[in-house]
């Protein structure tokens, strides 16, 4: 599915929390009815969801991870989180 949803200034939705799990050495995204295990890029992405713009997030990730994370991938990932109600959109 192509992303049609507007993602401008994503923030984590109410009750959604990032956490580093020291026991398993994993990144977790926790929310009321469950959790996701994230990879390094995913974790870095959700931690940047603080109301800054999508472009800023994409740019920061490119600086950190190089070209392997395409802007489109980041967008798709955020879109998936958004369709599960895990991120919402500040102002906009």
């Amino acid at each position: 599915m192509k992303a049609t949803f507007k993602i401008e200034r994503p923030t984590l939705a109410r009750g959604v929390r990032y956490r580093w799990d020291p026991v398993r050495a994993e990144h977790h995204l926790l929310f009321p009815e469950g959790m996701l295990v994230l990879n390094d890029t995913g974790a870095a992405t959700v931690r940047l969801c603080d109301g800054r713009s999508l472009e800023e997030i994409q740019q920061t990730l490119r600086l950190e991870f190089g070209d392997e994370t395409s802007a489109e991938e980041v967008r798709e990932f955020l879109h998936r989180l958004s369709s599960r109600g895990l991120i919402c959109h500040a102002d906009s």
């Binding site: 956490r19 026991v23 398993r24 977790h28 959790m35």
Partner: peptide, 8 residues
């Protein structure tokens, strides 16, 4: 529980 790996 937290030492065992429980997160929620």
């Amino acid at each position: 529980a937290s030492e065992l790996g429980v997160v929620q």
